[in-house]
Nucleic acid binder design. Structure first.
Lengths: 248, 248
DNA sequence: TTGATTATTGCAACAATTTGCAGTTATTTC
DNA sequence: GAAATAACTGCAAATTGTTGCAATAATCAA
């Protein structure tokens, strides 16, 4: 049995039973437990399973996007929870992509009725799972790395929208440079989003506070609400509060 | 035995067993393992198989275990393989959604350079995985059930495209009613796709031949190529051949 | 056709990957 | 905290891959 084949078998077992024991696997395909362990390690490294003492567990069986481990997932979930609380029935919501946005999408309450605009494939996919949410995809050329639509067409469409609230994940934010990023096309799209909504929410893990990148999306004064995983009272956030931002 | 012949044999074995060992192949056709390895390398480079230590796997193998939920998956993979052979470098390809299309997306050779237009979220996601494919998403309101963009905006955008080839999965097709479906909005989109491309390919598992649904997308005469999992010579396909369709 | 050129194939030496084992260390469980 | 179980480490043997090379086969221009 080829190595890949064996690993595929393991994955299958995991997704079937949600958990496996090294011993069982070793038994059923007749290889040493060491080999199984090595396989599990590899699968865990690429984020396909979660390794535990004695075997492995399935990652959430939400497996459409079985991307590698989300960096700092706990913080992002915290942020997402705060963000969800801002969305009310009937709102027009504009969102970018990014892992934090995806977490938010997963946490949306079932009974929420709202219209979501996005140019992100993973985000649209998640929104579409919700029974009461209407999803409008803003199409154009898809940027491979970030899986969002970029280009003039997308920007034009965004400008024709007037959303109540806009959620942006961010790569870097500080007082001096504002929100910054390092991909020209993505920046253009985010800029358009900023302009097209009444209220702007920026979500950022604290690690990204006070860092900046090459291209500017907008100043701190263009943001209405800043969400981090920190307690709103944290002194790291003081400068932003001074500027008049609401901190969650 | 000629090289091409040998590689065809290898491909056949792979698609038959989902995996092959270099040693076995070397044995059964009496060439050195080096030659087999070189063949496997070539086949892997053009994306026809996945090479692993000790042999090779079928491309669809990866998802083979993970995807027990697709109805009639084997047939769909067969269809997808035939479909892929129609796509050449530099083409503008327009596709719908549906499981058969997804299979096709997964089987696209790594080195294929083409531009794909689609309004389907899962399809766009798959296309975006390929290194040399440019993906243009046709946005609009997302239909939950089928995860594709529907509505006037999407249709207008499709009409502005002139694609070389269009691939449609289908729910029902027969001689009398042509291609039919049961969702009004989806039908409008598919109609637009039919009109916007030079060549139209319809993919259908044989089970859906000679069935029809309520809403008509287009007549049989608007189709250029029909792909099913059957042998092209199968007599079930005779009526379509009579009408001048190319059968794969 | 012929001679030159290119492609294909098998071989040999060397490099790498994979696998199981033994000994040791870490973790769990009572 | 001690016994049991699992995990890690280093290692050796077997298998598989790679590379350069020479012999052979296929292709093509004149």
């Amino acid at each position: 049995m080829l190595k890949k084949e064996r690993q595929a078998y393991i994955l299958h077992q995991v997704s079937l039973h949600n958990s496996v024991l090294s011993a069982d696997l070793s038994n059923s395909i007749n290889v040493s437990e060491d080999t199984i362990r090595r396989d599990l390690n590899e699968l865990a490294e690429t984020g396909k399973v979660i390794k535990v003492h004695g075997g492995a567990l399935s990652k959430s069986f939400n497996s459409f996007y079985l991307r590698s481990d989300v960096y700092n997932a706990d913080s992002k979930i915290l942020i997402a929870e705060k963000a969800v609380s801002l969305i009310k029935d009937g709102m027009f919501v504009l969102t970018g992509g990014g892992t934090t946005i995806i977490e938010m999408a997963r946490l949306l309450p079932e009974n929420l009725k709202a219209t979501f605009f996005t140019g992100s494939i993973p985000a649209a996919f998640e929104y579409a799972q919700h029974p009461n949410i209407e999803v409008i995809f803003i199409g154009d050329k898809i940027a491979k790395r970030s899986q969002i639509a970029i280009g003039g067409e997308a920007i034009t469409r965004i400008k024709h929208i007037k959303a109540d609230i806009c959620f942006l994940g961010t790569n870097a934010i500080d007082m001096e440079h504002g929100i910054t990023d390092n991909d020209w096309d993505v920046v253009q799209v985010k800029k358009a989003m900023l302009e097209s909504s009444t209220q702007t929410v920026v979500m950022s893990i604290s690690e990204k506070l006070n860092s900046y990148q090459r291209i500017r999306i907008g100043g701190v004064d263009e943001i209405d609400i800043l969400i981090t995983e920190l307690d709103p009272g944290n002194k790291l956030l003081d400068p932003f509060r001074m500027k008049g931002l609401t901190i969650l």
